[in-house]
């Protein structure tokens, strides 16, 4: 099957000599939910900018559903929907007009454009706001407007550059549900995000980019499997003794009711509970100290620095 996105040896240098991309290569398969992660300035937005023609590449090859952007960029663009990081619509235009006009730029006749605009504005909960000037929308609504605008020509590849930045938790969750549904219906999705929890919850495959280079390109399951250590925080029912030790585990007493336990690869959490039970310590709740992926991310990025 032809990949949804193929990037080969992609390079971007600016006039001042700064190399934003140093020959990255990656492939995103059709139907995938793919995360592109990296710290600020790593090259994520440059990569996305090249794919959707807002940035000119210095070298390399990009193909969208087999269509090379150097040979047929308009053909490739028809398959792409882009949701940028910054709001990039006319704040004085009405919500409905913004979506309908975008459809027009893709050659959709007015009646079909209006039909599609209604469909996606309804799905994203913006139909009631269709006659409102876009500047009157809240931040979350503006982000949803950009998603509706990106979907109006029904692209096969949707690229979202930090779509949930600055969005409240409830709105973020509903956006996740919408994107999961869209992906289940067959749309390939590429997401850049700073919320690693988001990548872990939504995406199947991942690439981590740092200093213009891909430092990791695999499945999220594989990444998590490679983690050697997890840290759990345990809330205890009764007051803890001054010193708590569990054989083969590193334990820290955080306060009178809280323990931090490191579980290495090969060890199980059941062993921890058995040992605590032997000491008469009862646990009321438990959580990860940090997002597992976040730890991996920090290790990879710091390792490459």
């Amino acid at each position: 099957m032809i990949p949804a996105l193929t990037i080969e040896n992609l390079r971007k240098s600016y006039g001042n000599g700064f190399e934003a991309l140093k020959g990255i290569s990656l492939e995103v398969q059709q139907g995938d939910f793919f995360a592109l992660l990296g710290p600020n300035g790593a090259g994520k937005s440059t990569t996305i900018g090249i794919i959707c023609s807002l940035v000119s590449k210095t070298g390399g090859r990009v193909a969208v559903y087999g269509t090379d952007i150097d040979q047929d960029f308009p053909g490739a663009k028809k398959n792409i929907g882009i949701v940028p990081q910054e709001f990039n619509f006319n704040m004085f235009e009405k919500v409905f007009d913004i979506v309908v006009n975008q459809a027009g730029y893709y050659g959709l006749p007015l009646p079909l454009a209006a039909e599609r605009a209604e469909k996606y504005l309804r799905e994203l909960g913006l139909w009631d706001k269709r006659d409102v000037a876009s500047r009157m929308l809240s931040g979350g609504m503006k982000r949803r407007l950009m998603i509706a605008r990106a979907l109006v020509h029904e692209p096969r590849l949707l690229i979202l550059d930090e779509p949930t930045a600055g969005v409240d938790i409830e709105m973020r969750r509903s956006m996740w549900d919408f994107l999961k549904k869209l992906n289940a219906e067959g749309t390939t999705i590429i997401l850049t995000t700073h919320y690693l929890e988001e990548a872990e919850a939504l995406c199947r495959n991942i690439a981590i980019i740092n200093h213009g280079e891909i430092v990791e390109h695999s499945s999220i399951k594989e990444l998590v499997r490679r983690l050697h250590r997890e840290v759990f925080i345990l809330d205890c029912v009764e007051s803890l003794p001054e010193v708590v030790s569990l054989e083969a585990f590193t334990v820290r007493r955080m306060d009178e009711h809280t323990l931090e336990v490191e579980v290495e690869k090969g060890q199980t959490i059941n062993q921890v509970f058995d040992l605590l039970d032997d000491r008469g310590i009862r646990i009321s709740s438990m959580r990860n100290r940090a997002n597992r992926l976040e730890e991996m991310f920090v290790n990879l990025v710091e390792g490459a620095a």
Binding site: S53, F73, P74, I80, E86, N88, E93, Q102, Y105, R149
Partner: peptide, 18 residues
């Protein structure tokens, strides 16, 4: 210039419009 200033020109640039 207004569409450049508010970046809405990107709506056109990302589209297949020649």
């Amino acid at each position: 210039f207004g569409s450049k200033f508010n970046h809405s020109v990107e709506e056109l640039l990302v589209s297949p419009t020649p």
